[in-house]
Amino acid sequence: MSLRRKALVPRHLFAALAIAAACAAYAEDTDACGGGWEMDPAVELHYRELGVASAEKQLQEGRYDDAAATVLRVIPHVANYDAPPGDAVIGRAMRVLAVSTARQHGELDIAKQVPDYLHASWLGEKKEDQTKNLEYSVRILRAIHKNKKDDAVAQSELGEALAKMDSTREEGRKMLEKLAKKDLLPSPEAYKALAELRAAKGDASGQKVALQRCRAMAKDAKICKAGSAQS
């Protein structure tokens, strides 16, 4: 037994060295770890790009917790940024996390999908965590909007996030109303947020119109009901 073990060690060592050497040789052609990682022509897409594309799809499908979890798994340091950096993929990831967090009112059910050390405040177990998370959403979406002033999606998503906090609700309402007036609200979620804001203002007929648009646009009209965060 001991003899066999002795024989295995060099073999493992040899294998490990071979893999390391292969990786080193391979890495010469790449711009790895945060760069383009382009290995033309066979493999060009980075796992982050694929992961973020997948998170965007989950966001579109209304799977906000899944979308946020995917982003945190793929780019664990995403929450360290205060504004999108030059890297478009990280910017897209930040948008997904910020929008998902806002739509879940700062309370992400991601404990089973994300390792403990990445939980930070994302679970929103305490009120202050939820506030912190919503503030993150607003901060990031504001930064995205600043870079894309004429982008109705960026504007609407910021409006939604602003509407989730008392201190910024009126700003969010104005933003969403302006877009709605020009038929530029891009999602049923935005119409739902607008319906809630109009209701809070006592505008029952306006609320009804916004809810009608939400139901017409939504795959599942359930998301238009008050208090329904995740479809």
Binding site: Q60, D150, D151, V153, S156, D183, L184, P186, S187
Partner: peptide, 11 residues
């Protein structure tokens, strides 16, 4: 290229 962006119009 996406539902939201189709709704978001043009300049």
């Amino acid at each position: 290229d996406s539902y939201e962006r189709v709704q978001a119009g043009y300049l």
